[in-house]
Design a protein around this nucleic acid. Structure first.
Length: 502
RNA sequence: UCCCCAGUAGCUCAGUCGGUAGAGCAGGUGGCUGUUAACCACCGGGUCCGCGGUUCGAGUCCGUGCUGGGGAGCCA
């Protein structure tokens, strides 16, 4: 990069910025202006990949400022590229020292140019001796700027969702989220899977996974009616009732029965009125689907998958994991390391119920064959009884979805839940019913109309094969990795009943 | 949706028996220092969530609404 080339980047197109820059440039000594300037991230400046004495430009936001009347100020600047800020040493000789540098507070945006040097002080490897600090944006009314260099509650930060990414915690969550998402894609790619983008708008009205959000362009104040006075959905955008998807599974099965190994990774919507630390109305779901595979193959895939993603995050985001360890939940790193090192226990549902009944432990709801396992049951199994991740398999038919494969006992279906210590259920999956007659029977029994699933039934008519898959809520994975308590902190802009503010 | 808890300064909180409001941080001013969420002094800053009630008097007690949190159900 040529000297000062960076000032022509889009951020400085606004006239006031350009004028300020050109004024500052004119005031710079000639030799300074000729120095070769390298635009670097805070991460690169701190990790040793840039040699000392390099002339650098950095752009970011002020975290803290400390003044020393020995003639310098220390300005900690972060650009989000890593957990740590870089310390910028601002000498009083800077042209704008009195007028601007001493007015810097948390949140101000700055462009810093200077020399990267090994730090004289403790607490950081490198620092920048500034030749120039351009204040790009001050903070209006610093007293009311919500993000202060102190501990805020996560509840408060949810109310300022547009500013919370500037905090340590949410910067770390965002970086971990990215790292985990990339690891998901990498894992599947390395295993020969293809990413399939299933539709977000769907006409399947009974996928059996909960309340759906309606999608419509009709005028709510003036709905078209048919002769019987019912809403005439033929006049709606798609000519029929449509909703936001609650799962990409049915659609991805079609691609599975052509490309063999596929997965979805996209937004999913549930209009349930559930107000808990584990539910979102809009979340990202990962749903792999494998052909010529049974429930055991599915469980094995889930195990390899989780371990791969955890290992990737531990390796790539050690700095952020250290932060979560120290400030959010002690033991998160060890928990993941243990997870990676342990083999998953396989347990039959029937066996699990029997273990629970014989445990002698008092549950609020006693375990009973034919009823779903309660959160307290799941946690007992994975945390106390086994002490590592557990896959519970083969649940009673009556508590599971229509597409799950009937077992030979005619009482259970090939479903599985992966339970993890510290969180409970993290993955739900199943082998799918590939036999058309059994699928139809199951749908009818559950009050669904096979004719509404014509295309899904076709998959069983034309070259049907055993196949299986599972679903994983991405935010639940993030909650587990980061040691968070509430899923609303694992997604940038949480959507829950009564809240879609940002 | 059900059960429980909370709401006081920009933020985190204290506020005794019902007697007219406090600290730390943040902000401003000054001092000091290669500082480390610096330190010291001073200053400014309040619809005590809203509404209604009890009382001579309510941040405090009662009712109600709103908002937030925890737990349950549903689930990923």
């Amino acid at each position: 990069m040529r000297p000062w080339e960076c000032i022509f980047s889009p951020i400085f197109r606004e006239a006031p910025c350009r004028r300020r820059l050109s004024r500052l440039l004119k005031s710079c000594p000639r030799n300074t202006r000729r120095k070769v300037m390298q635009l670097v991230s805070v991460k690169k400046a701190l990790d040793g990949s840039i040699p000392a004495a390099t002339h650098v430009e950095m752009r970011g936001w002020v975290r803290t400022r400390r003044d020393s009347k020995a003639g310098i100020s220390f300005v900690n600047v972060t650009d989000g590229s890593c957990q740590d800020p870089i310390q910028v040493v601002a000498p009083a000789a800077l042209a704008n020292y009195q007028t601007e540098i001493l007015r810097l507070v948390a949140g101000c945006s700055v462009v810093v140019r200077g020399t990267l040097v090994k730090s004289q002080g403790k607490g950081q490897s490198y620092e920048v001796q500034a030749d120039e600090i351009v204040v790009v944006g001050f903070v209006d009314d610093p007293e009311t700027y919500p993000i202060q260099p102190k501990q805020h509650t996560l509840e408060f930060l949810r109310e300022v969702a547009h500013l919370r990414p500037r905090t340590n915690t949410f910067g770390a969550v965002a970086r971990v989220r990215h790292s985990a998402a990339m690891a998901v894609h990498r894992f599947f790619t390395e295993e020969g899977f293809f990413w399939v983008n299933t539709p977000i708008i769907t006409a399947s009205d009974a996928e059996g996974a909960g309340q759906m959000f309606r999608v419509s362009t009709l005028d709510l104040a003036n709905l078209p009616r048919d002769d019987k006075g019912k809403i005439d959905w033929h006049q709606d955008f798609f000519g029929k009732e449509t909703y936001l998807t609650v799962s990409g599974q049915l659609n991805v099965e079609a691609y599975c029965l052509a490309l063999s190994k596929v997965y979805t990774f996209g937004p999913t919507f549930r209009a349930e009125n559930s107000n808990t630390a584990r539910h979102l109305a809009e979340f990202w779901m990962i749903e792999p689907e494998i052909a010529f595979a049974d429930l055991n193959d599915d469980a094995n895939l889930a195990e390899r998958f989780l371990k791969y993603v955890f290992a990737a995050v531990l390796k790539e985001r050690a700095d952020d994991m250290k932060f979560f360890e120290e400030r959010v939940q002690k033991g998160v790193t060890a928990r993941m390391e243990k997870f990676i090192d342990s083999s998953f226990e396989r347990l039959d549902y029937t066996e699990a119920v029997s273990i629970l009944q014989k445990s002698g432990k008092k549950f609020d709801y006693p375990a009973e064959w034919g009823r779903d396992l309660q959160t307290e049951h799941e946690r007992f199994l994975t945390e106390e009884h086994v002490g590592r991740p557990v896959v519970v398999m083969n649940y009673p038919e009556v508590i599971k979805a229509f597409y799950m494969r009937m077992n030979d006992d005619e009482k259970t279906v090939a479903a599985m839940d992966v339970l993890a210590p510290g969180i409970g259920e993290i993955i739900g999956g199943s082998q799918r019913e590939e036999r058309l007659d059994r699928l139809d029977a199951r749908m009818t029994k559950m009050g669904l109309h096979p004719e509404h699933y014509a295309w899904y039934r076709d998959l069983r008519r034309y070259g049907s094969v055993p196949h299986a898959g599972f679903g994983l809520g991405f935010e639940r994975l993030i909650v587990y990795i980061c040691g968070l308590q509430n899923i609303r902190d694992a997604i940038p802009y949480p959507r829950v009943p009564g809240l879609a503010q940002f």
